[in-house]
């Protein structure tokens, strides 16, 4: 499939995410929808990669730390021809490499995640590797907001800042909902921008569904001498009215009718 615009790509990412989660009766569709625009812009406009050579040395490295939203990543990789769209049918099925948490056994997935707080330290390790070998490739890592409860992220941010890792971009999918209720009611993380800034990062806040804003903030020219943090304000369940901002879609899987309604709202038929 040839898709040249990030907007169209994001619609297909959402549509395939919904279809995969529905078929597998899996969870985490809400978070998948909240990162679909981010993934579309990253893979359409920002990251350097060759889908036929997934381990190309000069590629940019993308790590999905919120591994439970891997359906959206698998859909993105299929739409970018790392493998076929038909391969997505095995998502979360017996014996499949397409596990329902991000799996490095899938082409294009750098690192298996699923337990939160692991992606950023790993990304920092890669950024150090690139610096120490004077490589130009960059490292992007996508975290969830609830994930920031994990202390390992703050250990890694301290280190990244101390070592001036300006080849590292930390993106926070700030959809304001976590597993049981809002972030605010669980463990409040505000003022988030101030927190990252006080750790020495270069921080910007964007609308995580506005492709123009995302392109500007993600563009690789980081002239600062510190890691970049992008706080992307998003909506959990984005694009499907009955899923938006509802905690239950962290768990529920759309049935056949709900899938049809959702695809209609996205405006894509598969």
């Amino acid at each position: 499939m040839k898709i040249n615009s990030s907007v169209l790509l994001s619609k297909y990412i959402k549509a395939y995410t919904l279809k995969m989660v529905s078929k597998a009766k899996a969870s985490h569709v809400g978070g998948g929808l909240s990162i679909s625009d981010l993934l579309a812009v990253l893979y359409n406009n920002i990251l350097y990669f060759d889908s036929q050579k997934p381990l190309l040395e000069s590629r940019d490295r993308f790590i999905l730390s919120k591994g439970h939203c891997c359906a959206a990543l698998y859909a993105t990789l299929a739409l970018k021809n790392f493998f076929t769209l038909r391969d997505l049918n095995s998502f979360a099925q017996f014996g499949s490499n397409f596990m329902s948490h991000a799996s490095h056994k899938v082409k294009g997935v750098e690192f298996s995640t699923g337990s939160l707080g692991h992606g950023l330290p790993y990304a920092v390790g890669k950024a150090v590797a690139a610096k120490s070998r004077n490589k130009k490739w960059e490292v992007f890592v996508l975290l969830s907001d609830g994930e920031l409860n994990e202390g390992s992220n703050w250990e890694a941010t301290l280190f990244a800042s101390h070592h001036n890792l300006n080849n590292l971009t930390i993106i926070v999918d700030y959809n304001k909902l976590q597993s049981l209720t809002t972030v605010e009611k669980t463990i409040k993380i505000e003022p988030l921008k101030d927190k990252f800034e006080s750790f020495g990062c270069y921080v910007s806040e964007v609308n995580g569904h506005d492709h123009k804003e995302l392109k500007n903030s993600l563009s690789k020219t980081n002239k600062k001498n510190s890691p970049k943090v992008i706080i992307a304000h998003t909506v959990k369940g984005k694009g499907v009215s009955f899923m938006e901002n509802r905690v239950e879609w962290h768990y529920k899987s759309p049935d056949k009718d709900q899938l049809e309604m959702a695809l209609n709202e996205i405006g894509v038929s598969l």
């Binding site: 790993y122 390790g125 890669k126 590797a129 250990e155 890694a156």
Partner: peptide, 26 residues
């Protein structure tokens, strides 16, 4: 000096970083 890192008192980050470095053939 280029092959030495003091990760600080932060073993989770040290170990995660070690995996990242090893993924780049260190």
């Amino acid at each position: 000096p280029k092959q030495f890192i003091n990760a600080g008192v932060a073993e989770q980050n040290m170990t995660g970083m070690a995996a990242g470095l090893a993924s780049e053939k260190f």
